[in-house]
């Protein structure tokens, strides 16, 4: 399995073998190396549920759980795992946490489980999970690996939540299912396109554009 195409296509800085520093990990995960607009990784499994804020929140929580814990577990085992079966072990560990999430949802929130359909399972192939385990978990102690996973997932979640809020608001006039003033009223002609798939592509494109432009300006100013 290779991540060449996934990880460095758009040239995000990598964090291999740096001295662990909590502040740096947090800023990297949330902004400087943000999974969505900087690394453009792993949007597949979650973009589809961003037409409702509630589904997105649950999906993001599932991702935060899986990513931080599997990065920590991979890092715990890093001294024992033989290199040639590393990928298999990582898949196994990620799959393990995903199944736990799936079982919990099925047992305690069956409606949500059907809403999310196969997308919970697809966290396994979410490149960001595997990518962080490979790029960071493998070479760093469990504590920082956990932090790195957690804040990468958080950086990912906040972008998706922005997208979900805008899509639900413009498309259905509600946020979290609660009608919003004006948008749910008769004067707002609901943009069905926002709830349909093209809306997700447009929103993600626009959000990427905005955040990248901010980043470019910031870099320009510091130079």
């Amino acid at each position: 399995m290779a991540f060449g195409v996934c990880s460095n296509e758009w040239g995000g800085p990598d964090t291999v073998n740096k001295k662990p520093d909590a502040r740096k990990i947090i800023i990297d995960g949330l902004w400087r190396n943000n999974p969505v607009f900087k690394q453009v990784l792993g949007i597949c499994s979650t973009l589809a549920v961003t037409n409702l804020v509630l589904n997105t929140v649950v999906m993001c929580v599932a991702l935060i759980f899986t990513l931080s814990l599997s990065a920590a577990t991979v890092s715990l085992l890093r001294k024992f795992t033989p290199r040639n079966i590393r990928m298999m072990i990582e898949t196994l560990i990620i799959g393990f946490y995903v199944i736990i999430v799936d079982l919990v949802l099925k047992a305690y929130w069956p409606e949500m489980s059907t809403n999310l359909g196969p997308y919970v399972g697809l966290i396994i192939t979410n490149c960001i999970v595997m990518g962080r385990c490979e790029a960071y978990g493998n070479t760093n102690p469990p504590g920082p690996a956990f932090l790195d996973g957690f804040f990468n997932a958080l950086g990912y979640s906040f972008i998706l939540l922005i997208i979900a809020t805008i899509r639900e608001l413009l498309g259905m006039g509600t946020v979290l299912g609660y009608p919003m003033p004006y948008f749910s009223g008769p004067y707002w002609d609901k943009w069905i396109i926002m709830v349909a798939p093209p809306g997700a592509f447009f929103m993600l494109g626009v959000v990427t554009w905005i955040f990248r432009s901010i980043e470019i300006r910031r870099e320009h100013n510091t130079k």
Partner: peptide
């Protein structure tokens, strides 16, 4: 800012 992923997504 739109180059690369941005324009591709749109």
């Amino acid at each position: 800012g739109l180059q690369g992923p941005g324009i591709t997504l749109i």
